[in-house]
């Protein structure tokens, strides 16, 4: 079963990968990082990426149909009972893609069975980066990271 580092190293095997990190979007904390990051500071990059991820996750416009209703069911902390195991932290958005002249950033939200707010952030060089592949792989990695 992969840990955080194995997961990030796997992300680094994506074509064109320059850096990969696991980031908490509420606090901006980088829980793990490998490779390089824009500006040379992975903590600063994580904090900035976290802000974008947070805004995206909080906008109702980007949530799928019926998300609010479902969310209302297990968003009740008090009476809690069983969260029926089905993902307490189930972000409304799957991923977020940002492109510029020389690179892509792919942010993949990670659903977890406990309360959290994390995403995988991969920085890809544009000439080699393959967005479709990155999206698929990151989705798989996010699942394996927390589901084993």
């Amino acid at each position: 079963m992969p840990g955080i580092d194995e997961c990030l190293l796997e992300a680094m095997r994506l074509p064109g990968a320059r850096g990969a990190a696991l980031v908490d979007w509420t606090s901006g904390l980088a829980l793990g990082a490998v490779g390089e990051f824009p500006g040379g500071d992975h903590e600063a990059a994580a904090a900035e990426a976290a802000e974008v991820a947070r805004l995206t996750a909080e906008q109702r416009a980007f949530a799928p149909d019926g998300y609010d209703r479902r969310d209302g069911q297990d968003g009740h902390g008090g009476h809690d009972g069983q969260g029926s195991g089905g993902g307490v932290a189930d972000p409304p958005v799957e991923d977020l893609i940002i492109s510029n002249r020389d690179s892509y950033h792919v942010l993949r939200f990670v659903p977890t069975s406990f309360d959290s707010s994390v995403f995988l952030h991969v920085w890809l060089a544009r000439p080699d980066g393959n967005l479709a592949l990155a999206r698929i792989r990151l989705g798989e990695m996010a699942g394996r990271l927390v589901l084993g």
């Binding site: 079963m1 992969p2 840990g3 955080i4 997961c7 696991l22 908490d24 606090s27 904390l29 829980l31 977890t112 069975s113 406990f114 959290s116 994390v118 394996r144 990271l145 927390v146 589901l147 084993g148």
Partner: peptide
């Protein structure tokens, strides 16, 4: 982890968050 009760990634993630 040895008993396979929780995936390593989930435990690491949750623990790191709890530590910070």
């Amino acid at each position: 982890l040895d008993a396979g009760r929780v995936p390593r990634g989930a435990l690491e993630l949750c623990h790191l968050e709890a530590v910070f």
